[in-house]
Protein backbone atom coordinates (compact mmCIF):
# COMPACT_ATOMS: atom_id res chain seq x y z
CA UNK A 1 0.00 0.00 0.00
CA UNK A 2 1.55 3.28 -1.05
CA UNK A 3 0.69 6.77 0.14
CA UNK A 4 1.39 9.80 -2.03
CA UNK A 5 2.59 12.99 -0.39
CA UNK A 6 3.51 16.38 -1.87
CA UNK A 7 5.90 19.26 -1.19
CA UNK A 8 5.31 22.97 -1.63
CA UNK A 9 8.09 22.81 -4.30
CA UNK A 10 5.79 20.61 -6.41
CA UNK A 11 7.40 17.22 -5.89
CA UNK A 12 5.45 14.07 -5.19
CA UNK A 13 6.60 11.12 -3.08
CA UNK A 14 5.05 7.69 -3.23
CA UNK A 15 5.83 6.08 0.14
CA UNK A 16 6.07 2.28 0.23
CA UNK A 17 7.53 1.05 3.51
CA UNK A 18 10.90 2.75 3.95
CA UNK A 19 11.25 3.59 0.24
CA UNK A 20 10.05 6.85 -1.34
CA UNK A 21 9.69 7.24 -5.12
CA UNK A 22 10.11 10.91 -6.05
CA UNK A 23 8.98 12.93 -9.07
CA UNK A 24 7.58 16.32 -9.97
CA UNK A 25 3.87 17.01 -10.10
CA UNK A 26 1.66 17.49 -13.10
CA UNK A 27 1.25 21.12 -11.99
CA UNK A 28 5.05 21.53 -12.05
CA UNK A 29 5.40 20.10 -15.56
CA UNK A 30 2.69 22.42 -16.83
CA UNK A 31 4.60 25.39 -15.39
CA UNK A 32 7.92 24.18 -16.86
CA UNK A 33 6.70 23.48 -20.38
CA UNK A 34 8.41 21.04 -22.72
CA UNK A 35 11.11 19.16 -20.82
CA UNK A 36 14.20 18.44 -22.91
CA UNK A 37 16.75 17.26 -20.35
CA UNK A 38 16.76 15.60 -16.94
CA UNK A 39 19.83 15.09 -14.76
CA UNK A 40 19.42 12.47 -12.05
CA UNK A 41 21.47 11.91 -8.88
CA UNK A 42 24.01 9.07 -8.66
CA UNK A 43 22.80 5.85 -7.11
CA UNK A 44 24.24 5.53 -3.59
CA UNK A 45 24.33 9.30 -3.02
CA UNK A 46 23.13 10.36 0.40
CA UNK A 47 20.75 13.29 0.04
CA UNK A 48 19.88 15.76 2.76
CA UNK A 49 16.41 17.24 2.83
CA UNK A 50 16.17 20.41 0.65
CA UNK A 51 19.46 19.67 -1.14
CA UNK A 52 19.47 20.01 -4.97
CA UNK A 53 19.05 16.40 -6.11
CA UNK A 54 18.15 16.55 -9.81
CA UNK A 55 17.79 19.05 -12.62
CA UNK A 56 14.93 19.37 -15.05
CA UNK A 57 15.36 21.61 -18.09
CA UNK A 58 12.78 22.96 -20.51
CA UNK A 59 13.63 24.70 -23.78
CA UNK A 60 13.59 27.94 -21.80
CA UNK A 61 15.27 27.25 -18.45
CA UNK A 62 16.84 24.87 -15.95
CA UNK A 63 15.18 24.13 -12.60
CA UNK A 64 16.49 22.23 -9.60
CA UNK A 65 14.55 19.38 -8.06
CA UNK A 66 15.20 19.33 -4.30
CA UNK A 67 15.32 16.28 -2.10
CA UNK A 68 11.94 16.41 -0.36
CA UNK A 69 13.33 14.32 2.54
CA UNK A 70 16.72 12.92 3.51
CA UNK A 71 17.77 9.50 2.29
CA UNK A 72 20.05 7.37 0.14
CA UNK A 73 19.41 7.16 -3.62
CA UNK A 74 18.53 3.51 -4.36
CA UNK A 75 17.61 3.75 -8.03
CA UNK A 76 17.13 6.33 -10.79
CA UNK A 77 14.80 6.24 -13.79
CA UNK A 78 16.98 5.41 -16.83
CA UNK A 79 13.95 5.56 -19.12
CA UNK A 80 13.36 9.17 -18.05
CA UNK A 81 16.97 10.18 -18.68
CA UNK A 82 16.64 8.78 -22.22
CA UNK A 83 13.20 10.31 -22.80
CA UNK A 84 12.82 13.53 -20.78
CA UNK A 85 9.47 14.33 -22.47
CA UNK A 86 7.93 11.65 -20.22
CA UNK A 87 7.76 14.41 -17.60
CA UNK A 88 5.16 16.16 -19.76
CA UNK A 89 3.19 13.08 -20.73
CA UNK A 90 3.14 11.19 -17.41
CA UNK A 91 4.62 13.33 -14.61
CA UNK A 92 3.10 11.36 -11.76
CA UNK A 93 3.59 7.92 -13.30
CA UNK A 94 6.32 6.79 -15.71
CA UNK A 95 8.33 9.99 -15.14
CA UNK A 96 9.49 9.21 -11.60
CA UNK A 97 12.99 10.62 -10.96
CA UNK A 98 14.58 8.52 -8.20
CA UNK A 99 13.88 6.20 -5.28
CA UNK A 100 15.17 7.02 -1.79
CA UNK A 101 15.63 4.90 1.31
CA UNK A 102 13.91 7.13 3.84
CA UNK A 103 16.43 8.23 6.50
CA UNK A 104 14.02 9.82 8.95
CA UNK A 105 10.30 9.07 8.80
CA UNK A 106 9.55 12.09 10.97
CA UNK A 107 10.39 14.28 7.96
CA UNK A 108 7.26 12.95 6.23
CA UNK A 109 5.18 14.82 8.79
CA UNK A 110 5.96 18.13 7.11
CA UNK A 111 4.56 17.04 3.72
CA UNK A 112 1.09 17.58 2.25
CA UNK A 113 -1.54 15.04 1.35
CA UNK A 114 -3.34 15.31 -1.99
CA UNK A 115 -6.14 17.51 -0.68
CA UNK A 116 -3.67 19.94 0.92
CA UNK A 117 -1.56 20.03 -2.26
CA UNK A 118 -4.61 20.72 -4.40
CA UNK A 119 -5.46 23.64 -2.12
CA UNK A 120 -1.83 24.81 -2.36
CA UNK A 121 -1.92 24.95 -6.17
CA UNK A 122 -5.48 26.25 -6.47
Amino acid sequence: MTTTLYTSDHEWLAIDGDVATVGITDYAQQQLGDVVFVELPKVGRSLKKAEAAAVVESVKAASDVYAPISGEVLETNAELAAEPALVNSDAQGKAWFFKLRIADKSELGGLMDEAAYKAHTA
Partner: peptide, 12 residues
Protein backbone atom coordinates in the same frame (compact mmCIF):
# COMPACT_ATOMS: atom_id res chain seq x y z
CA UNK B 1 3.43 36.07 -24.64
CA UNK B 2 6.33 33.72 -23.90
CA UNK B 3 4.28 30.81 -25.25
CA UNK B 4 0.76 29.74 -26.17
CA UNK B 5 -0.93 26.48 -25.15
CA UNK B 6 0.96 24.55 -27.89
CA UNK B 7 4.22 25.17 -25.98
CA UNK B 8 7.70 26.30 -27.02
CA UNK B 9 8.75 23.01 -28.63
CA UNK B 10 5.69 22.66 -30.90
CA UNK B 11 5.70 26.37 -31.71
CA UNK B 12 9.35 26.17 -32.74
Amino acid sequence: PVQYPAGVLKEH
